[in-house]
Design a protein around this nucleic acid. Sequence first.
DNA 1: GGTGTGCGATAACGATGTTACGTAAGGAAA
DNA 2: TTTCCTTACGTAACATCGTTATCGCACACC
Lengths: 208, 208
Amino acid sequence: MAGDTAAPSAFELAQRQGDEAIRTTLLDAASRLLATEGPQALALRRIAAEAGCSTTVLYRMFGGKAGLTEALYIEGFERFRRRLAAVPHDPDPRVHLRELGLAYRANALAERNYYGLMFGEPVPGFQPGEKALATALSAYMILEDAVAACAAAGLLIDAPPRHVAASFWAAIHGFVSLELDGHLPDADTVVDTLMRGASSGFFVTPRK
Amino acid sequence: MAGDTAAPSAFELAQRQGDEAIRTTLLDAASRLLATEGPQALALRRIAAEAGCSTTVLYRMFGGKAGLTEALYIEGFERFRRRLAAVPHDPDPRVHLRELGLAYRANALAERNYYGLMFGEPVPGFQPGEKALATALSAYMILEDAVAACAAAGLLIDAPPRHVAASFWAAIHGFVSLELDGHLPDADTVVDTLMRGASSGFFVTPRK
DNA sequence: GGTGTGCGATAACGATGTTACGTAAGGAAA
DNA sequence: TTTCCTTACGTAACATCGTTATCGCACACC
């Protein structure tokens, strides 16, 4: 009959373009499952079925679940870094830092399953490897640079800028974690108090 | 021969004292496994073997893995609350709040597997129920009361004390989370900067 | 054209949470 | 005391998970 050949799966299409296309196709399927159904849906059989292939391909591309999780971890931090890098530079470095904090929160809320993968531990045995931690660091550097800009402008308290950056990161990260866990019912208003506290806590008013 | 009766297991000993003793025995075994080997070791067969019984008892006592996880979650927050409540009350409420923050960190470091269970999500599908969240809230209330004491002493900035308490919690919680994840190599010095920022950010010097 | 190499699907293995089944024990009623 | 019923427990089976072994097939290379 006419309909002898079924529609080619995403995997079959990618297969003609080399391993890199296969890899991104699988990663896309996994990413979609993570975003829409949460980390529970990150089962290898599930991902393979979604892409239209068998789990063997996942082992060839990622070595196993740990490798795939790490790839998603890196992808999450990449998206994170891009979002932070896209925040426009306000002339006032304090304002820029504040807007980075708000973008941090917005990104975490928009892709909470990625955020959980990056900072929670929804995949039982997973520990990020060297490359994964480097990617995380590159995202964090955007925050640290913003704090360094504040320091260069003489706006910072007398403390190592790196410690201030880590403290600021801890504050916004903790806030987001609690919010995602449902511990902060009125998070929208709390974030204002948090930013106010960070402003008056880490900054000094420059003597003109 | 003489050695006909083997040594009675922990479960058999508890069995003679009623269901409550059985429950605490199983919870003790699970708690020990969690503390020493991490959440990976929280397998029902493993816990049952440790206590000397079968998994059926776990289902009768806790209804399944979710119920047992919730019991451990509550136990973790209970320990947390007790530790925070044991912090001596410094006359200066600001000092008391600071020491609560340090106790928060110390407890998290001492029982990091419990902390991961409470704030991470190492058991794939687990969501805390109503009673669990209430227990968590009672621990948090100690922090909120300390902030309220600061407010009563006229030491707080012009913001709702509840928002200040939430912000303070977010900061120390985020710091601990990052430290446990290995993102803060020099955590010991960062905590000083964080506390300094919180002090000058959320407090005002009272006008005598 | 033969040959080998690697890729992918299928199936099996161990471990997990969960459920069904059989059994023994203990108490209540006759 | 005897009988019966309820309850508790252990064993075994089932579905699902990550992982690995096996087999077939297609393509490339000589």
